[in-house]
Each structure stands twice: as structure tokens, then as C-alpha cells.
Amino acid sequence: MRIDIEDLTVEIAGARLVSDATLGAGQGQLVGLVGPNGSGKSTLLRCVYRALRPSAGTVRLDGEDLYAMSPRESARRLAALPQEAASEFDFTVAEVVAMGRTPHQSSVGRATEADRTACARALAGVGAAHLADRGFLTLSGGEKQRVLIARALAQEPRLLVLDEPTNHLDIAQQLDVLALVRDSGPTVLTSLHDLNLAALHCDLLHVIAGGRIVASGAPYDVLTPELLAEVFGVRAHRVPHPETGALQLLFDRLGPARTDS
């Protein structure tokens, strides 16, 4: 599935949080949205998964207006993992993941063999099959995150929208989860804080600052020392990964180093 976001603007209580954002992701691509805290990443993604209606602009899925679709129809095409996805009820892990099948079920809501297979495959894929009978509220932060990603994958979306999916995960889990979503099939639009993870896994990056897209392109072309100094306020050193050759970044403070007096 292709997603195109065109001239998207969000104003809330007189404040413009996103301004004329235009970006896209092609079929099967993993596309990252990066920028400093408060730059508008989450606000933009909330418009994509319909938690927020933009003040202007459009979001199109394979050319169709997202906001002209019924919630059920868009949920069959798109799954999302918000940055804060709390659950106040102590469902089991299996029950949480099964919620991802709701858009595909009839009004009766009975699980089919296809539903059970999709849920089992998603839990196994994130390494959480052993948690199926646990209460969701008893899990650690990292375990909860893996279960919520499994719920999104069980939905079998053609577009997966992830807002900081590596939150609460240790280093190995971060690498595993991003590799998993890349290999799972759908087009992926994700926000990421870790620029090295973004450089390693993303086909394209869109850099947002002050609510505006200021750069778009392949990670090597976008993550330049000049842009990182301007947008993130850091001095960056670009080095190749010793085994893969992928771009890696080392950071220093932009200003002069402080010395003890």
C-alpha cells in the first residue's frame, strides 16, 4: 500500500503544530519520521491513524481519501501503535492480541481459525508466545510493547503506523522489532528517536522541525552533519558500520566542551 500525506496542517487552540507537511511511503517501504521532541512527529502520525483530524490537507491510501472511509474500512487497511497505548483492564495477552482481529470479524464477533492463526503468528513473531496466558498489566514495559506490536500485526494491515515502537525495549529487542516489522510485509510509517536505528532500518527519512518537513530522502543523504547541527543542535560524525557499511553516527555537543575550573 502507498500512503501520501499532502499539505497537512494541524492547529489546536490557536497553535499551529504541523504546517503544510507533504510526505509519502511506497509499497513495502519502511519510512521514518525523525525530529527533536515537540517537532510534530506524533501529531502528524495521529492524523494518519485518525486519532486527530487535520485542519487542512489530505491523507490518501493508494489514492483514496482516508477520511472518506468508514472507521471499519480504514482499520482493515491500517493498524497503529500509538506512543502511549494504555490498558486499564487486565486482559490476558491473548485477549489483547485478539483485539487486532476485530475489523475482520462479523457483528457476532466469533473468532475463526484464521483469527487464531493470525494471533499465534503475531505473538510468535515478536517472541511473546510464552506470555499468552499472562495478564497484560503484569508485564514489564518491554513485554507490553511487544504484545501491542503483536496486536497490530495480527490485524494484518497493509499499512503499519508506529509512534516510537522501540520505547521500553532493550537493544536486542529494538533490533529484532524493527527487523520484524520490515519483514512482515506492510508499508511502515514510523517515528524514531534513535537516529542510528533510523539510518540502519529505514528506506527513506523525513525530518520534521517546528512542525515542518525540512528534509526528505535516503538516510545517508538526509543525516548530514549540517542538518543534524541545525535541527538537533549536535555535532555529528558519520562513520560506516565495520561489518555492514551502514551509516552510523557519533555525537558531540555542538558548543565547546566545558572544562572544570
Rank of each mutant, 00 (worst) to 15 (best):
Arg2His: 08
Asp4Ser: 14
Ile5Met: 04
Glu6Tyr: 00
Thr9Ala: 02
Arg16Lys: 13
Arg16His: 00
Leu17Met: 02
Asp20Met: 00
Ala21Ile: 01
Leu23His: 02
Ala25Asp: 03
Gly26Pro: 06
Gln29Arg: 14
Leu30Ser: 01
Leu30Asp: 03
Val31Lys: 01
Gly32Phe: 04
Leu33Ile: 14
Val34Asp: 07
Gly35Met: 09
Gly35Leu: 10
Gly35Gln: 06
Pro36Ile: 03
Gly38Met: 05
Ser42Gln: 03
Cys47Asp: 01
Ala51Gln: 14
Pro54Leu: 05
Ser55Met: 07
Gly57Thr: 08
Val59Lys: 10
Val59Arg: 08
Val59Trp: 03
Arg60Pro: 04
Leu61Met: 13
Gly63Met: 09
Glu64Thr: 14
Ala68Thr: 12
Ser70Phe: 01
Arg76Leu: 12
Arg76Thr: 04
Gln83His: 12
Ser87Phe: 15
Phe89Cys: 10
Phe91Leu: 15
Ala94Pro: 00
Ala98Cys: 10
Gln105Ile: 08
Ser106Ile: 06
Gly109Pro: 05
Arg110Gln: 13
Arg110Gly: 05
Arg110Ala: 14
Thr112Lys: 05
Asp115Trp: 05
Thr117Glu: 13
Cys119Thr: 09
Ala120Asp: 14
Ala122Ser: 07
Gly125Cys: 06
Val126Ile: 08
Gly127Phe: 07
Gly135Tyr: 09
Leu137His: 06
Leu139Ile: 10
Ser140Pro: 05
Glu143His: 08
Lys144His: 06
Arg146Met: 13
Ala154Lys: 11
Pro157Val: 11
Arg158Ala: 15
Leu159Arg: 13
Leu160Met: 07
Leu162Cys: 12
Asp163Glu: 02
Thr166Arg: 07
Leu169Asp: 04
Asp170Thr: 04
Leu189Gly: 04
Leu192Lys: 01
Asn196Trp: 04
Ala198Gln: 09
Ile213Leu: 12
Asp221Tyr: 00
Asp221Val: 00
Val222Asp: 11
His237Phe: 14
Pro240Ser: 11
Pro240His: 05
His241Gln: 08
Glu243Asn: 01
Gly245His: 04
Leu247Cys: 02
Leu247Ile: 02
Gln248Met: 13
Arg253Asn: 13
Leu254Asp: 11
Gly255Arg: 15
Gly255Ile: 07
Pro256Leu: 15
Ser261His: 13
